[in-house]
Amino acid sequence: MTATQANTGQHRQPVHPGTPPAHPVLRFWRSAVGKKWIMAVTGIMLLGFVFAHMVGNLKIYLGAGPLNTYAEWLRNLGEPALPRTVLLWIMRIGLIGAFFLHIVSAAQLTRMNQRARPSKYQSPRDYAAASFASRTMRWTGVIVGLYLIFHLMDLTWGNANPRYVRGDTYENVIHSFKRVPVAIVYILANIALAIHIFHGAWSMFQSLGLNNPKWNRARRTFAMGFATLIGVVNISFPLMVVTGVVK
């Protein structure tokens, strides 16, 4: 902030300089509203993934057979139109893309917001609406991201799971969750995930502009319900294994 700006009483020097690019896609991407829209759309994809993942994993309560059958079904998805695992890979790439855009947008918006308030309030804020969830999105997001990598290493690639056996999903899960520290990591991470989802699932309606005062309360209820469902079910897996209910 240069002195001259405030001195004229006519703020004209942008805080975020630069001119919008000509190409409409780039121009949309450059805008924060555009990025929030992208975050909402990718967020919906990720919510869909999280939900499907959770539903699939519920098979763990039916025993090794059903879970492994389900895992195998996933790999065969799209057959015979597509070769085996192709559709799964397409979905994976889509998800990776969604993650990437979601994270890059978040990072860029965070930087923008930091520039927008270079000197902070010098006395404590008394928030009236901003919830714990909304103010910690950045942190719950980072936690979920790190956890995701661990989760992949643990149960997809196996490098974090000494007893990993490719294809034996059920056993891999049981062996992993039996380790108390790992179970704790899973539980904490899923709490973070639920918190992240709570704000995200409400906020996406705003970002997409899906708004009708008649439905505003339903949006909150949906977000709360969805976050609770994901949180409770996902946490139940490590909890049931570590407590020995599921063996």
Binding site: K35, K36, N113, S134, R135, M137, H199, Q206, P213
Partner: peptide, 27 residues
């Protein structure tokens, strides 16, 4: 966006607004 940050839907503005303008308009 040249001058300000981005909206991440905290809803704090609506609470502070002396005219109680709704964030529905943001949507």
């Amino acid at each position: 966006e040249k001058y300000f940050g981005s909206c991440t839907n905290h809803g704090e503005c609506e609470q502070a607004c002396p005219k109680e303008i709704s964030i529905d308009f943001i949507a």
